[in-house]
Structures are given as C-alpha cells and as structure tokens.
C-alpha cells in the first residue's frame, strides 16, 4: 500500500484496515492525514445529526396504529357505500400480481441484502424463462438473486431503466395465461407468461411497467 491508496481508502470511509494501519505506522505524512481525517469524520457525523423535531419519535411510534384505525374506518365506509361494485373492483386485483407488489414492499430489501448470485449461474437458471441477455437489453441489471416467492423458487432482478427502478420476479415452471395485474399503495405489477414460466414486473409507474413488459416481450 502506498500513500495514495491509503488516502483513497480513508476518504471512502470504510475504516482503517490492517494493511492501512501498517502503512500509517511507517509514514509520518499519512499519520498526520489520519489525525486530521479523524477530526473531519467527527465533525461530519455531527453535521449529519440534524436535530429531530420535538416529540417526533413518540408521534411516529403511535402514528401507524392511529392511521390504520382511520384507514379502516374510511375503508369500511367506502366499501359499504360502494357495495358490490367495490367488491368487484377488489376482486379484479390478481393475487399473484399482488404478491409481486408485496414482495417488493416487504421482501426486496432482505433479498438484496442476501447478495447476488454469480452471473454464469444466473444466465443458466434464467435461460428457459427470461434470458438474462434479454433483460440487459431493456435496462441495467443491478441485482440478480434467487428468492423464495409464493411457495416456489424464483429469481429477483433489480433493473434500472431510464424512467427509474423496476423489479422483475422470474418464476420458472409457473405457466399462466395472459397478463395479470394489480396495483396498491402507489405500486403497480403485471405478470406475463414468458418461456417455460412467467415474469412479474413491478414498479411505481404503471406506464413504465407496461413499457418494460412490452420490451421484454419483444
């Protein structure tokens, strides 16, 4: 390790590893840099620690339950008013597409945290349903990993397209007819047949979901 490596790693903020420490102990210039950097990091931590509004934590701890009660009361009123029409609208929401949205809202972060799978393995596992190369023609693949989904083995892809982030759930061996759709809480999902299975496409904008679906079909 040289001085440039040392300072570059210091600026990345990952902490001082053994190799860095060995270098510093033999280098007066980097020792001085290390001392200055420590003071800077302390100031940076202080600067980022903006004061939290008074009572904020308490309000947040109680807010979901209060909002939930208001939401349930409003939903009950709406459903009573809408009657059969409201029920029919809810029924149009496809359960598999809804499960795709739930995955993004509740499981995606954990799935990403589990780490990606090797590219060669991803290419092999996706080949029969949605070849990785076809996905890469649509956008930039940020993550591919296996994930349990809806009682099956599926593959989770995080894709960046010009309009933003889109999630794909590739489900080999799960054949279905026609696109299925659902929308809730600001998210939209469409599930389409693909190869020997199906693919769920989930995003915050239905137009982007449709656009990605069209591009994957092409």
């Amino acid at each position: 390790m040289n001085c440039l490596d040392y300072r570059r790693q210091l600026l990345a903020g990952s902490g001082e590893g053994d190799a860095m420490r060995v270098h510093r102990l033999g280098c007066a210039a980097c020792t001085a840099e290390w001392a200055q950097h420590g003071a800077f990091e302390e100031a940076l931590r202080g600067a980022l620690q903006v004061a939290v509004p008074e009572g904020f934590v308490e309000r947040m701890a109680r807010a979901p339950a209060l909002r939930r009660r208001r939401f349930l009361a409003a939903a009950a009123g709406t459903l009573l008013a809408a009657g059969v029409g409201g029920y029919a609208w809810l029924a149009r929401q496809d359960p598999l597409a809804m499960a795709c949205i739930d995955f993004v809202m509740k499981e995606e972060a954990k799935s990403i945290m589990m780490g990606p799978m090797p590219r060669d393995e991803a290419r092999r596992m996706l080949a029969g349903t949605m070849p990785l190369e076809a996905v890469e023609r649509v956008g930039q693949v940020k993550h591919v990993g296996p994930c349990p989904f809806n009682g099956r083995n599926a593959y989770h892809i995080v894709l960046t397209v010009p309009q933003g982030k889109v999630t794909l759930l590739v489900m080999p061996g799960y054949r279905m007819d026609g696109p299925r759709r659902a929308a809730k809480e600001g998210m939209s999902a469409a599930v389409m047949a693909a190869g020997d299975g199906s693919v769920g496409i989930i995003g915050t904008d239905v137009a982007v979901v449709d656009s990605v679906m069209g591009a994957l079909k092409a």
């Binding site: 309000r59 979901p64 809202m105 954990k110 945290m113």
Partner: peptide
C-alpha cells in the same frame, strides 16, 4: 410517517428482525 405506515403493515411478515434497520 408514510414509510413507517408501510413498514407497520409489512412488519408481521418480517422474518429477520436483524435486517430491520436496513429494511
């Protein structure tokens, strides 16, 4: 506030509380 409402709805299905902060 909106994020915690979503989190609250999803929380019963959070299996690994160790990952809760990142979640």
């Amino acid at each position: 506030q909106e994020a915690l409402l979503r989190g609250w709805r999803a929380f019963p299905r959070l299996r690994e509380t160790a990952a809760a902060r990142a979640w």
